[in-house]
């Protein structure tokens, strides 16, 4: 099974790397980060907060959107091109197939992040800023967990809706995640008993992606330390629960779909 899983994942990764869109996204984002780095702020080099904040934002948005598009395309594409039939004729279970796809998307996300991380680190060092290594590593790790949730959610959405709707909802969910957390925190006090119940349920059943975003902490790293082990373990558990739930839902819809 691990070999089969790896073969499927590898094909997703190769396809992602071959597609010019991924390069275009990485290239455009890298150019954006380099141009941020290149702006002359009164000849002052040691001002790195702005660079850190903007570069982390670009990295996160570019990778998030790439993952949503890549993951949402996987299954509809197999059905559209009818390659799913050849694959299913082989001794591969649907679970292995879907897990392989997910693993492949995650490898592509990690590939994107790796490229961006190199640009980010070179940029920070060039500007003379300090790199909070542990905090930054934690940030990248938590971002990958975000990508895992997004990828499994996109699989599920792509099985339920048409491709464009899946991409739109996936992207909006990712881009508006922080706002959703703000809204639920704020309007709770205004709501009646039933409203409060709905907000509470929503807060617990919808993943709060903002919990997996350490970009503010990393930007203002001189004032904040890395997270402790317990918090990291709790965050990992939190993310895995949602990723597993969405994966199970995607699996359910995938099984229901007639070949």
């Amino acid at each position: 099974m691990p070999l089969k899983l790896w073969l499927i994942a590898r094909s997703v990764l190769i396809e992602a790397i071959r597609r010019r869109e991924v390069y275009a996204i990485v290239l455009v984002s890298t150019l954006l980060i380099i141009s941020i780095m290149g702006i002359d702020f009164f000849g002052l080099k040691e001002l790195t907060k702005f660079y850190r904040e903007s570069a982390l934002k670009v990295m996160s948005i570019a990778t998030g959107l790439t993952v949503v598009v890549l993951a949402a395309r996987q299954l509809p594409r197999e059905f559209e091109m009818r390659t799913i039939y050849t694959l299913m004729a082989r001794p591969i279970s649907r679970t292995t197939f879907l897990a392989g796809k997910l693993f492949g998307v995650m490898l592509a996300a990690a590939f994107c992040f790796l490229l961006f991380t190199l640009v980010y680190l070179v940029g920070t060092l060039y500007l003379g800023g300090d790199i909070p290594w542990v905090l930054f590593a934690q940030h990248v790790y938590l971002q990958l967990l975000t990508m895992l949730i997004l990828a499994s959610l996109s699989f599920w959405l792509s099985m339920m809706l048409n491709l464009d709707a899946a991409i739109t909802i996936g992207s909006l969910f990712f881009l508006l995640a922080a706002m959703f957390t703000n809204v639920s925190m704020y309007i709770y006090d205004y709501a009646d008993a039933f409203g409060r119940f709905v907000i509470k349920i929503g807060t617990f059943i919808i993943p709060q992606l903002t919990l997996l975003d350490l970009s503010e902490r990393t930007t203002h790293a001189q004032s904040w330390s890395a997270l402790d082990f317990t918090t990291m373990a709790m965050l990992t558990g939190y993310a895995l629960i949602f990723a597993a739930a969405y994966f199970a839902l995607a699996m359910l819809w995938f099984r229901k779909r007639e070949l």
């Binding site: 503010e216 902490r217 997270l227 918090t231």
Partner: peptide, 11 residues
Amino acid sequence: VIGVLHRRVKP
């Protein structure tokens, strides 16, 4: 617990 994590993760 979500609030606890939120306060730990953000500045």
